[in-house]
């Protein structure tokens, strides 16, 4: 591969990472946040494969059942690492999506800012402290809810499998 092609791949990988990170800081929709993460992870994986690339080398698979003809091969370790990294990414993204589904069900929104505000309100309500805007007000003055809120849903369900 030409020098130009390698630099183009490098720019592509870093570009994906940059797009992903820009998405992570800019997006507010939970689903887009997960997508941004997936894009950034794709970039990092491409970078990792690129780290094992050697000019003019072949894939690390021996053909013809003989070890005698020694052609140059690319580094197999980054390829194994990428396999691991991809699987890790899939697991984390599935978990994040499941959490997004539940958050949307509970709060009726997929907007991170709104969800965060609702979460803060819930935490404050559960703890029974005054909201942060009135920090100087005496905090014991309000009637206190019971110390531990019972979780919103512990519905009857199937035995965990």
């Amino acid at each position: 591969m030409s020098e130009f092609g390698l630099v183009a791949l490098l720019v592509g990988a870093l570009g994906l990472i940059a797009i992903g990170i820009a998405g992570l800081v800019l997006a507010r929709n939970l689903f887009r946040l997960v997508l941004a993460l997936a894009v950034a992870e794709a970039g990092a994986n491409l970078l990792l494969v690129l780290a094992g690339f050697r000019q003019g080398a072949s894939a690390p698979i021996i053909e013809g059942g003989s070890t005698l003809h020694q052609v140059a091969m690319v580094d197999p370790i980054p390829q194994a690492m990428v396999l691991t990294a991809i699987v890790i990414g899939v697991g984390v993204q599935a978990l994040a999506l499941a959490l997004a589904v539940r958050a949307r069900e509970a709060y009726g929104s997929l907007d991170m800012d709104q969800l965060r505000a609702r979460m803060e309100a819930d935490i404050i309500a559960a703890a029974g402290t005054a909201p942060t805007t009135s920090q100087e007000a005496p905090s014991g003055a309000r009637p206190l809810p019971p110390p531990l809120p019972s979780p919103a849903r512990i519905a009857a369900e199937e035995p965990s499998s």
Partner: peptide, 12 residues
């Protein structure tokens, strides 16, 4: 803990 607040916090 399965409270909505925990799910949002865990997502973040």
């Amino acid at each position: 803990s399965r409270t909505p607040a925990a799910q949002v916090a865990t997502f973040r």
